[in-house]
Nucleic acid binder design. Structure first.
Length: 1058
RNA sequence: GGGCCCGUAGCUUAGCCCGGUGGAGCGCACGGCUGAUAACCGUGAGGUCCUGCGUUCGAAUCGCAGCGGGCCCA
């Protein structure tokens, strides 16, 4: 039996009830099981990092995933959707260090790497559980029971196996690269872990003496004097102009300097030269023949052996001197110049920030102290042109705030640049939503792809499975746990994390002992292998064949350079093709101003706050509907409240007929839709057609990932078609108490629409859909699927679609709105009936719409008749009035103009118009008897409305409302006023709908009493009065007595329970 | 500095691909309805379509340049 719903929409109550229900029957698993054997759909969840809390962006991400997967499932797909977790990496190490009170890598070593790893694991698992609960509250259905986790052995094996593929395909390389380095923490740190802060540094100009031109120097500028000992080259821009300048000091000494022409004045001013003379100018590309002496060659023996030349580089800017100091061991750009030209990657600085023995006299000095010393040494040698300070933004270690340095270190690389062309052609094979996400944005990123540094000198990560022989340096890459056991001769029970795996040694072909290199993987490599790791490959092989590559992934646009890229790179290495077939790139959540949400700005909105206030379905409907997925979402509280209102209306629409259905014991299983067809009215056929059209539009929106269109179409249907129109039309039909086939038809149609609607909203508002479904379907059909989400997606029933009717209804609604407008103009409220409405249709279709839907229009406009004029014609009761044009009359009649105008206003406008239309002039008699001739330019015409008629335009033509009153109309109007007052009082007394009353009505106007008495019976039955006295001078008493003013007439009404 | 995306009423947005009178919702003002009622509905006011230039008979829409915002990079 259908249950009556009386309460307001209470999201919190409904959603927690539904969660209990889902958990109780294990709905998710049942839904997935139900589709086993259907078309396969492999979805890979981009694993969120286990930070412990989700934010609005992660919520949106998962909501998109959930809605698409629910839709797919209903469309009969067997879905594989393990949730994923990214659980390794420095952020967790840092959190754990904080908890343990550690400040450096040495603390970890003292605590024991094994203990530390255990803490990290524990922490990550805890965070994962917290976040799972938060996703749960959003109604996200993924495989949460068996998620893929990057810290699991099977997962680690997937990464190992991938690296082994790289080695076998000669795509793995060990080499020196420059990385961000924290000299205090003694570790490489990722770019995203560098914080930029304002800082004051030295700013020095240094002269490098040319070897073959005594007395000539090239001038460079730097803020890091400590890197001068590592200088190997100078870079200039090929197309800048450079000058050779004779610079003279105040004491008359002169020297020759080389720098960018545009900067000569500035630099010489800094060097306090008294005068200068340009000797020669040349392009940067002409400077490459120059060779200079390292300024500190006498202190650093190794530097004395290197050659130092000038090279060309596009990154050089016309700032400072236009000549850039290059130390390939201490800068990214510098390093590239070095590699390009085969220069030594000289890096005489150790991980602790102290110079190594390679630095000669600087050995063991910390770079922090070195700045001063280097400057001093340069000064002694007469090589310092100028010295000062500069305030600029500089990178700092995010956890200890130490300024970072750049160090060339030995790292492991995947040779992605060799795969670039293949990657680009793979991008074209993937379907991107939107198209430009792939063709423009991702393509651009991949075109700039460089070799991928996959090693980190940390603890909590997937250990790099490279073992190196301590004797012959040979390396072996281990691809699986089994291989490791076989090679090491161990029996098993091994843990693949550090430090356990570090203690495993292998025997080299040469007989030497092989030890694992100490590095762990960059965390981006972890998630990169997700598409096969989630299939437990290589541990299991058959699942890969069955599912891979992924049918669909979706993440935010920041993942262009992140997961979209890392997955593609790893997959090219492993399988030589893209790991996904289609990608939806979604946007970011911004605050209401369009600014990024960040803790420091204090504009972060927590999903839990929103859920607490409005519920998960509202949040879901809001983020899905407010913009296209790929556009950024400006989070607005007003808008979310608006969406909440829409859902509330849906709820009200749903519960509105239930009390009547329950009262009538309506059983939908007894009544087929077919059987009520003879009793359907046009509005019934119309709403059924609209419902089918909505399914179609949702389908076409979903096809292109336009979730916003899908949800908006649903909302519009609920608001416009159901709430504002259909429900308004059928209300009186549901109040009929007898067993009326007309009422049963309405019930059955509403039932049809609602049950379809529960399925249509299921992917987007899964809780509300379930709540409605349980009552509408499960309470009626005990053999129906347990959950709405187990149902098949509705297929539009073509036989119910009637596009003509939909179009006609649109026109009819437009007429009703126009009448509303006209009523307001003529001051006749809706409660008062009008005699007739005249519509002047512009075409046959409009006429047909009005004709066919006459009943609907009469009903909604409270009118007694609808009259159509001829198509394209005008209403024959309209009048015309002539409007004199003084601009044309004045010049012709001069002093008589006033008389002419006065006379024109008096003439018969219709006759005037006729005459002017066919002849040249109209003979007008003035008040003084004179006759003048009026030309067509002297007058214009305007339609005039009969008295008490107002007009308004609609898309079905101009609508005229005739508000003239007759006795019958007036009687009805006043009676309605009386009824409305009594009903209001019934409500105030909190009477039940079916309760009877006694009423006494005193009206202070005999004429109105007389009018109202015409409809005494109607009033009595409408207000359910057993005894009713209406009169001019009656005594009013009762349980509730009130005085009213109706259009200026006093009424005194008293009512009592019967 | 580069790539991509976004910029329409006070706010959130449709329309832009494929040129021809800019359309909603919220808010505001006025009104209606009163058996969905702490609900619902109508009418109205409100727009340099970011700016400038160009193409065109005609530009919110196409092109170029700039400004502002977002993501990514340098």
């Amino acid at each position: 039996m259908l249950k009556e719903i009386t309460g307001q929409y209470n999201a919190g109550e409904i959603e927690s009830k539904i969660h209990v229900f889902w958990d109780g029957i294990d709905a998710y698993s049942k839904v997935r099981q139900r589709r086993m054997g259907a078309k396969r759909f492999f979805f890979v969840d981009g694993p969120p990092y286990t930070t412990g809390h989700i934010h609005l962006g992660t919520a949106w991400n998962k909501i998109i995933k959930d809605s698409i997967l629910r839709y797919r499932s209903m469309n009969d797909y067997h879905i594989l959707d393990r949730a994923g977790w990214d659980m390794h990496g420095l952020p967790i190490e840092v959190k754990v260090e904080e908890v343990l009170g550690f400040t450096s890598k040495k603390d970890i070593e003292r605590y024991g790497v094994g203990n530390f790893i255990e803490k990290c694991k524990e922490f990550a698992l805890l965070q994962k559980d917290d976040m799972t609960r938060q996703f749960h509250s959003l109604g996200i259905w993924l495989n949460w029971k068996d998620p893929y986790m990057t810290l699991r052995d099977e997962y680690i094996e997937a990464a190992w196996w991938t690296l082994k593929q790289a080695q076998q395909k000669d795509l793995l390389e060990e080499g020196k690269r420059v990385v961000n380095w924290c000299p205090r923490c003694e570790t490489a740190i990722a770019d995203s872990e560098v914080e930029y802060e304002e800082r004051v540094d030295p700013s020095i100009y240094v002269k490098f003496r040319l070897k073959n031109e005594p007395g000539t120097s090239i001038v460079i500028w730097t803020t890091t004097p400590w890197t001068i000992p590592s200088n190997i080259a100078v870079a200039v821009h090929p197309s800048f102009e450079y000058s050779k300048v004779k610079a003279v000091t105040s004491s008359g000494e002169s020297e020759i300097l080389i720098m960018a022409s545009s900067l000569v004045k500035d630099v010489l001013k800094k060097g306090r030269y008294a005068d200068f003379k340009i000797l020669d100018t040349m392009l940067g590309e002409d400077l490459t023949t120059l060779e200079y002496e390292h300024p500190l060659a006498d202190q650093i023996p190794k530097q004395a052996r290197f050659r130092h030349n000038v090279y060309l580089a596009d990154f050089v800017t016309a700032e400072n001197t236009g000549c850039v100091h290059i130390a390939p061991g201490h800068g990214m750009d510098d390093f590239e110049v070095g590699v390009k030209h085969g220069l030594p990657i000289f890096c005489p600085v150790g991980p602790d920030g102290r110079y190594t023995e390679e630095a000669g006299e600087y050995t063991d000095m910390h770079i922090r102290e070195a700045n001063k010393v280097v400057v001093e040494n340069l000064k002694e040698r007469g090589l310092l042109l100028a010295e000062g300070t500069i305030s600029h933004r500089y990178g700092h270690c995010w956890r200890c705030k130490t300024p970072i340095i750049y160090l060339a270190t030995r790292q492991w690389f995947l040779k992605i640049s060799e795969l670039k062309e293949q990657m680009l052609s793979e991008i074209d094979k993937v379907v991107w939503y939107p198209e430009w996400a792939g063709s423009a944005r991702f393509r651009d990123w991949v075109e700039g792809a460089r070799d991928w540094c996959i090693s980190r000198q940390r603890y909590w990560g997937i250990p790099i499975p490279v073992w190196r022989c301590t004797e012959c340096e040979r390396i072996d890459v281990i691809g699986t746990k089994l291989e490791l056991l076989e090679r090491s001769g161990l029996a098993g029970g091994i843990e693949l994390h550090r430090p356990y795996v570090d203690s495993v040694t292998l025997t080299c072909e040469c007989g030497g002992k092989m030890r694992r290199v100490e590095d762990v993987f960059d965390v981006w490599f972890d998630s990169a292998v997700a598409s096969w790791a989630t299939l437990n490959f290589p541990h299991q092989k058959d699942e890969l064949e069955k599912w891979w590559p992924a049918d669909f992934i979706t993440e935010g646009h920041d993942q262009t350079r992140g997961w979209f890229y890392s997955q593609l790179g790893a997959s090219m290495v492993a399988f030589g093709r893209a790991p996904y077939k289609s990608v939806l790139m979604h946007g970011f959540t911004l605050d209401v101003e369009g600014k990024k949400m960040s803790k420091s700005l204090g504009n972060v909105v927590q999903p839990s706050e929103v859920i607490g206030k409005f519920g998960a379905d509202t949040l879901r409907a809001y983020v899905l509907s407010s913009s296209a997925p790929w556009e950024d979402l400006k989070f607005s509280n007003d808008e979310i409240a608006n969406v909440h209102r829409t859902i509330n209306i849906l709820w009200n629409v749903y519960r509105f007929p239930l009390p009547y259905m329950a009262l009538d014991a309506f059983d939908p299983s007894d009544v087929t839709l077919e059987s009520v067809k003879p009793h359907m009215r046009s509005e019934d056929r119309w709403i059924l057609s609209r419902m089918q059209s909505v399914i179609r539009s949702v389908d076409s929106a979903m096809e292109t990932c336009m979730l916003q269109k899908a949800v908006r179409n649903i909302n519009d249907f609920v608001l416009e078609d159901l709430s504002r129109w259909y429900i308004q039309l059928i209300r009186p039909r549901t109040w009929v108490e007898a067993d009326d086939p007309d009422k049963i038809a309405v019930y059955r149609v509403l039932y049809e629409v609602f049950t379809t609607l529960t399925k249509v909203i299921a992917p987007f508002m899964p809780h509300l859909a379930e709540e409605m479904y349980q009552n509408l379907v499960r309470n009626v059909y005990t053999d129906a699927p347990e959950s709405v989400h187990m149902n098949d997606w509705p297929v539009p029933d073509e036989s119910l679609i009637d596009m003509d009717l939909e179009q006609h209804m649109k026109l009819a609604r437009s007429v009703v709105e126009a009448v509303s407008n006209a009523r307001q103009k003529v001051g006749r409220k809706l409660r008062w009936p009008v005699g007739r409405i005249v519509v002047s249709p512009p075409d046959e279709n409009a006429a047909l719409a009005v004709k066919n839907l006459k009943e609907v229009i009469m009903d909604q406009t409270n009118s007694k008749d609808i009259v159509l004029t001829e198509v394209g014609g005008s209403w024959d009761e309209l009048g015309f009035s002539a409007i004199p044009n003084p601009g044309a009359i004045g010049p012709v009649f001069k002093g008589d103009a006033g008389k002419v105008i006065a006379a024109l206003k008096q003439v018969d406008a219709i006759a005037l118009k006729k005459k002017l239309a066919c002849s040249e002039g109209y003979e007008l008699q003035l008040a003084d008897g004179n006759i003048v001739t009026i030309g067509p330019d002297m007058v214009s015409f305007q339609e005039t409305l009969p008295e008490l008629v107002a007009s308004a335009s609609s898309s079905a033509g101009i609508v005229y409302v005739d508000a003239k009153l007759t006795r019958e109309l007036e009687a009805e109007g006043y009676s309605r006023e009386v009824i409305r007052r009594v009903q209001d009082m019934r409500k105030e007394m909190d009477l039940a709908v079916e309760e009877n009353i006694r009423a006494i009505i005193c009206i202070d106007d005999e004429r109105v009493v007389d009018l109202v008495l015409d409809l005494e019976q109607l009033i009595a039955s409408e207000v359910r009065a057993d005894v009713q006295i209406i009169g001019f001078d009656v005594e009013v008493h009762g349980d509730l007595v009130k005085d009213w003013d109706v259009e200026g007439i006093s009424m005194h009404i008293g009512i009592s329970r019967s």
